[in-house]
Design a protein around this nucleic acid. Structure first.
Length: 514
RNA sequence: GGCGGCGUAGCUCAGCUGGUUAGAGCAGCGGAAUCAUAAUCCGCGGGUCGUCGGUUCGAGUCCGACCGCCGCUACCA
């Protein structure tokens, strides 16, 4: 069983999560669930980034200690991810001892193996407490950071510890070009490659007078710069530096937003190389959720409440809509109208109604028992299902989640057409039992397959549909959905199972009366 | 400023190395059917393929310029 260690970016503890956070977590969860389905031994990590100046400020304005504040934020985030059915195996917080230990160990390991890579120097510049970065050039407009126009940039001059990032340009570039370190989608890889080709400067990795952070090893006056600290979370969660961390490391996939590729695709692999540790195998940088083509903004009133979006049609529906319509590569729009359109046309009318009509016919024509087809085996629908599974797999293996979702939904559409083509109600009236058995059996198989393939997108709905196939004399319990392997999906046998009356999976919102 | 991407039917987008009447889904219109969540299925798309020019027997598909969006990056007031 192949190990698959997947991570999301850890979230800053300075505000409520929004749709953008949600897209990343949902996408990563979709991948994690898919890899489990494909038989991998998945380890899925999420967590919180809890150091930094902005946390101190947020805590102060809430009249809380930093620790009390981050505890509260962690609980808030975790609750949202629970509501979205995130299936993470571990949850790391950078204030945990295991993380501080790993950060210290990594720095000491770099110092031991490449002492020249860590040095002290003076740094001077404008510091944005929102980004926790020094800002230069076009990042500054009207004297403010473009990301945080309401915050003051702080002129800062201090003696810091530096990391010799410039020494690793060629090594990182070579790994990206050769593919041993994959940066995707392609547009992101090209950006990173150009960035590397342009050359790198050494970076400051410590801060003075920043009590809320991890002490810099060998220099009690300074703390580890929050970004340098944060990246290491992926390693901390493996148990590093204790023996056995290699069971998980290197990470197979870091899922991040397109705005932080520099840290993950340049600095992070360089840090690891300096410590003589393997860089991650792959980074996937997703796009952003937009509102009518513009960045979501609270001030412009275009920020959508995540809680509201979850409650609107349910978490499964939000997951499907975001992954199918907004997508996991490029930027995409969120609008309530588009959400409605996907929900009604796809989830309710195509998928939900398919399950409803297929199982209802098995109820009324076969007393609720899935018939065993006597003649032939593969119907045109079975053939279509097999092809869909192949295309689905190809899309999901390449992290093209929107394509995977489309393949899944298209199969449901194909099944609806199959019903029209075969018209089981006519077969029933005409007493063509063998043909009817074959059609109903094929439909049941396909619905079961849809439950399996739909898991990464609509986990609870998939579970519900799967559980509709009850015990049969030959096989008392259907067995958990999560134990079904993707390789077996085309050979699923539900003949003989007793099906329950199908519930309304995706109830349609009542239309507003005129 | 540099580098890169995008601009195709009302909406979201496919269109690989140039070649029959430019496609899909959604929405809309018409029809059929009745197992089903008034769901489904079938039929219907004359859209300057951003603009102009070029290469070619032939360009949405290559080249150039321009317009409009967008991304990354740069010690540009």
């Amino acid at each position: 069983m192949a190990k698959f260690y997947v991570t999301t970016a850890i979230d800053y503890s300075n505000g409520e999560p929004h749709l953008g956070h949600a897209l990343e977590k949902i996408g990563a969860d979709c991948i994690a669930r898919y890899r489990r389905l494909a038989g991998d031994d998945v380890h899925f990590l999420m967590g919180m980034d809890e150091h930094s100046q902005s946390v101190i400020q947020a805590a102060a304005s809430a009249q809380l200690s930093p620790q009390a504040w981050v505890d509260r934020m962690a609980a808030t985030f975790a609750d949202y991810w629970r509501r979205l059915y995130c299936s993470h195996d571990d949850w790391i917080r950078t204030t945990e001892p295991r993380h501080a230990r790993a950060v210290t160990a990594l720095l000491e390991r770099i110092r031991a193996r490449h002492p020249d890579d860590l040095f002290e120097a003076e740094y001077e510049g404008l510091y944005c407490t929102g980004c926790e970065e020094f800002k230069t050039g076009a990042q500054i407009v009207n004297g403010h950071c473009i990301e945080h126009p309401t915050l003051e940039l702080i002129p800062t001059k201090e003696r810091n510890h530096f990391f010799r990032l410039s020494a690793y340009r060629d090594a990182v570039l070579e790994r990206i070009r050769s593919g041993s370190f994959a940066v995707e989608p392609e547009i992101r890889r090209n950006e990173v490659v150009r960035l590397l080709e342009a050359g790198l400067q050494d970076i400051s990795i410590s801060r003075q007078r920043q009590p809320w952070g991890i002490p810099f090893p060998g220099d009690a006056q300074q703390t580890v710069y929050v970004w340098f600290d944060a990246l290491i979370n992926y390693l901390s969660a493996t148990g590093f530096p204790d023996p056995g961390y290699e069971r998980l490391w290197p990470a197979d996939l870091h899922v991040i937003g397109k705005g932080i590729t520099r840290f993950h695709c340049v600095i992070w692999p360089a840090m690891l190389l300096a410590a003589e540790l393997a860089p991650p195998r792959r980074v996937w940088a997703h796009g952003y959720v937009q509102w009518s083509g513009a960045k979501m903004s609270k001030t412009a009133g275009t920020a959508v409440s995540l809680g509201e979006a979850i409650d609107y049609h349910g978490a499964d529906a939000l997951r499907y809509y975001l992954l199918r319509d907004v997508g996991f590569a490029n930027d995409g729009d969120f609008t309530w109208e588009r959400f409605d359109a996907r929900y009604i046309a796809d989830l309710a009318n195509t998928f939900g109604n398919l399950v409803s009509r297929a199982l209802t016919m098995i109820q009324s024509y076969r007393g609720g028992t899935v018939p065993r087809a006597s003649q032939g085996r593969a119907t045109p629908l079975d053939d279509a299902a097999r092809e869909a599974a192949v295309a689905y797999r190809r899309a999901m293996d390449g992290y093209r989640l929107e394509d995977g979702a489309a393949q899944w939904m298209d199969l449901a559409g194909r099944a609806n057409r199959y019903i029209e083509e075969t018209a089981p109600w006519k077969l029933a009236k005409a007493g063509k039992d063998a043909e009817l058995d074959q059609v109903l059996a094929s439909l049941a198989r396909t619905v079961a397959q849809l439950a399996v393939l739909g898991q990464p997108f609509v986990p609870t709905t998939a579970e519900t549909v799967w559980s509709l196939f009850g015990p049969s004399p030959a096989s008392p319990a259907p067995g958990p959905l999560v134990q079904v392997h993707l390789a077996d999906v085309s050979g699923l046998d539900v003949a003989g199972r007793q099906v329950a009356k199908p519930p309304i999976l995706f109830p349609k919102p009542r239309l507003t009366p005129a």
